[in-house]
Simulated scan of single mutants.
Amino acid sequence: MTGVESGVIAPLPMEKFAALEAAPGIIHTFLGRVAGLDVQVDRAQALQRLDSFHRTAREELGLDKRHVIVGEQVHGREIAIVDERTPAPVAGVDGLITASPDVCLGVYVADCCAVYLAEPEKRVIGLLHSGRKGSELGITTAAIERMRTEFKCDPAKIVVQLSPCIRPPLFEIDFAALIVAQARAAGVTQVHDCGICTGANPDRYYSYRMERGKTGRMLALLALRS
């Protein structure tokens, strides 16, 4: 991992997931901790300090011309269907679904899970912010149902990938297991969990709990290839 030296923007660790790499027509990444960057501030300040790094990552992925859409992330289960005309951030939602190749979906996390959904045949993607509350409210179930009813997606053809997130014993609830169970109950057979705990890997990830709320945010990005 490259640190921040002399004010020069260092490359971000851009993680990829094998299941999404194998899905045709999908661009994705999970952006981790920037070594050496002081983010022991509130969320707004942390995101401001991370912004140039995140913009550089989008450029490297060829997504710098896309309309980037994020949700307000209120720890709920509401989901928005979005396209290039949608203003961002989208108020009151934790989930985003699109069939537009002109947008890039984004989710910020720091212990919560970023849940990637992709149906390559229909060219429909979704990205969810799912922590304890969102998982217990069933945001993954709701997203799969929206993809099925509004885009005619077959759940058996949807790929679901879970990002790193906090897990027991560092957190009292295994909400990653709940997300996996909900996806399978909805008919998804291609469910993949990286199994990595953010709290146990402070050199790679930000952890809201372990850093007592003064920390940065990882960024999940998901888009369709043009």
Rank of each mutant, 00 (worst) to 15 (best):
I158C: 01
V74L: 12
A186D: 08
E121Q: 04
H129P: 12
D83E: 09
R66D: 06
T86F: 08
P169M: 15
L96T: 02
G62A: 04
A57H: 02
I97S: 01
P168E: 11
E119A: 06
F53K: 07
V82L: 02
I125Q: 01
D111K: 07
I125P: 00
Q73I: 08
T141F: 05
D94I: 07
D94S: 07
V74M: 12
V115S: 02
A177Q: 13
P87K: 04
A80W: 02
L178Q: 14
F175D: 05
H67F: 01
C104Q: 11
R55D: 12
R148M: 12
L61Y: 06
R146V: 03
L137D: 12
R55S: 13
G95C: 04
F53G: 05
R132D: 12
G92F: 13
C153L: 09
D64L: 00
R77L: 10
V68N: 06
A183I: 03
V90W: 08
S52K: 05
I97L: 02
A183S: 14
I173Q: 11
F175Q: 09
V115R: 00
L105W: 07
K157P: 03
I166L: 13
F53C: 07
F171H: 09
P87N: 09
G138F: 03
A110S: 15
K157V: 04
G131H: 15
F175P: 07
S52M: 00
P164V: 13
E84D: 12
L117N: 03
I166H: 11
I81F: 02
Q182D: 13
F53D: 05
A91F: 09
Y116P: 14
R55A: 14
A142L: 02
E172G: 09
R123K: 05
V180Y: 06
L162P: 05
A99R: 00
R123A: 13
K133T: 15
E136D: 13
R132L: 15
E145M: 06
P169Q: 15
C165I: 08
V109P: 12
V68A: 12
V159R: 13
V93L: 03
Q161A: 13
Q161E: 14
